[in-house]
Nucleic acid binder design. Structure first.
Lengths: 233, 233
DNA sequence: CCCCACATGTGACTTAAGTCATCGTCCACG
DNA sequence: CGTGGACGATGACTTAAGTCACATGTGGGG
């Protein structure tokens, strides 16, 4: 049992939210936190449920999304290890505004609302930390709104590929990146349907802006691709 | 000068953010705050600018919006007296994610970033308050994303009318509401263009779901209108 | 009283987005 | 080894959204 506790402390130490706290304080939270494992695709919480607390991701990835009655999905964010999920609804006492599900096998630490709130009152710098994190989240949402209301799917798709190209690796033929998920998932991330992803990728390939091999994309001329998004803005 | 100060304290007392503070603390902020008046349509701040602090609205309304290079606008929120604007970018040190402009003549109180941050550290309950407010804002943004990616303009327009109907007043002919702005502005609020607002309103009228007299809308059968949005969801 | 700025209505058209159906490929598993 | 399921490509089509051009209306200042 003591092992589990020190383990949880170790996890907390690696998060943006709690990194600065003393060992004592980490212990305080760790004692009150619960570790739980989720299977791939398993629901962490559902839109509209009351929000009993927040989650910290130890391993795995969690997608936060809205789904429409007709079955479409719009992904709001995908969070990885060290991130927290649902920090916000904890404070305004409302329901979860969206659903969350694990992408792969994921281990999450649950911290109850009350414990977290009292922590924030005792350590104002934690509250400021939350605000910083929430700020980033808010920017993300504003970005999604901007894309949804001003741009085409082609545009969004190119933007995503260009973003990925930053971490892609160079080859003689050009920058090489790998799609992070299947087309269904990509469609959800940009608020559309699978077919349009397929079609737009085909079209980009026909225009020689990219070359595809399965989920690998080779970008022979990155500046040309970047120019595509500048042009129509 | 003393008058100006007590005046500013009175303003602060009426805001959600500072309402709970003692007179001393209000004085502290009031001394450091600056009151400024904006003309209708005047820019308060622009997307991409560094964020020196936050604004409190005393009178008037402020629209927060994104604009596209092609001239389209998407309104993220419209805030009124007692609300604060740009509480968030204050904390993460980033730029403003959107622009803000006054709708009518507006008087805003400016509080610098540093003053506000130190206030939050001294009074953790202010930080929690900010988190609550930001939570509401986040819900608003998620709602916009949901509408943009799942619904039609017709749907959004009906939803807005139904929302307004809550505060509309009953007449023998049905509930009566007044459009809060011109069609250009409404279009920006729902992320589209003026023509589509006009057309959709005409169509709703042709279907006898509403009756229009200038900017006044009479809803003969509110449940029928509500049914329209339930149906296609 | 006229004219202009502004808001609105609407027809005709183009384009993006989404739907439906079908087909091929790859691969894991019985 | 063959079969079913997941994934992807694609044609044909419908519909929503957006663009352009222009008509109409209305209210205030010269």
């Amino acid at each position: 049992m003591a092992d589990a506790l020190t383990n949880r402390v170790a996890i907390l130490q690696k998060t943006a939210l709690f990194a600065e706290l003393s060992e004592q304080e980490l212990n305080y939270i760790a004692q009150r936190a619960v570790l739980r494992q989720f299977e791939p695709g398993e629901l962490v919480f559902s839109e509209g449920e009351a929000c009993p607390g927040l989650w910290i991701i130890e391993t795995g990835r969690v997608r936060i999304y809205k789904s429409s009655p007709s079955g479409r999905e719009q992904i709001l964010a995908v969070e990885g290890p060290g991130s927290s999920v649902a920090e916000l609804p904890v404070f305004d006492g409302g329901k979860y505004p969206a659903s969350a599900a694990s992408v792969n096998v994921a281990r999450l630490l649950f911290v109850s609302k009350d414990d977290f709130q009292s922590l924030c009152l005792k350590h104002p710098q934690v509250a400021l930390k939350v605000l910083r994190i929430v700020g980033r989240r808010l920017r993300g949402l504003v970005g999604i709104i901007e894309e949804l209301s001003f741009t085409t799917i082609r545009h969004r798709l190119i933007a995503m590929i260009v973003r990925m190209a930053d971490q892609g690796h160079r080859t003689p033929d050009g920058v090489e990146v790998t799609l992070p998920a299947n087309q269904q998932e990509l469609a959800a991330q940009m608020g559309t349907v699978r077919e349009l992803i397929s079609r737009n990728l085909s079209r980009l390939q026909a225009e020689d802006l990219i070359r595809m091999e399965g989920r690998k994309i080779i970008i022979p001329d990155l500046p040309a691709l970047q120019k595509e998004i500048k042009d129509q803005e």
